[in-house]
């Protein structure tokens, strides 16, 4: 679930970055770097886990799935917080440093 949620976040942020000039100005690219980087790393982790567990990898316990979903959502929130901090520090719209 963490992998899927991160993949979704990476795809959405990339689409936003691509279609919207304002999004590029607001440094949405940072989110693309974060989520694609994490997705690729978790993908590698998933492949290794699949090689170890086989088919069992695709039938996780309910409790594990719930925990992974929480983790995935927390990762997205953390990514957004990092982006927000960088955005406020760089302040491209000069809202803070008037």
């Amino acid at each position: 679930m963490t992998l899927l949620i991160t993949a979704l976040a990476a795809i959405i942020s990339t689409i936003l970055w691509y279609v919207n000039e304002k999004a590029r100005f607001l440094k949405v690219g940072i989110l693309c770097y974060e989520f694609w980087g994490a997705f690729l790393m978790w993908m590698v982790d998933a492949v290794y886990e699949y090689l170890e567990l086989g088919e069992l990898y695709f039938s996780p316990a309910g409790q594990d799935m719930l925990n992974d979903t929480f983790l995935g959502l927390s990762v997205v929130v953390l990514g957004l917080i990092i982006w927000l901090i960088i955005l406020l520090l760089k302040d491209p719209e000069h809202v803070i440093k008037k």
Partner: peptide, 20 residues
């Protein structure tokens, strides 16, 4: 710099997972 952004972003979020 782009490579370092990918690596910092990914490993930072993975570090959070390990903390979790």
């Amino acid at each position: 710099k782009k490579l370092s952004n990918f690596l910092w972003g990914g490993s930072g979020l993975l570090a959070f997972e390990h903390l979790w």
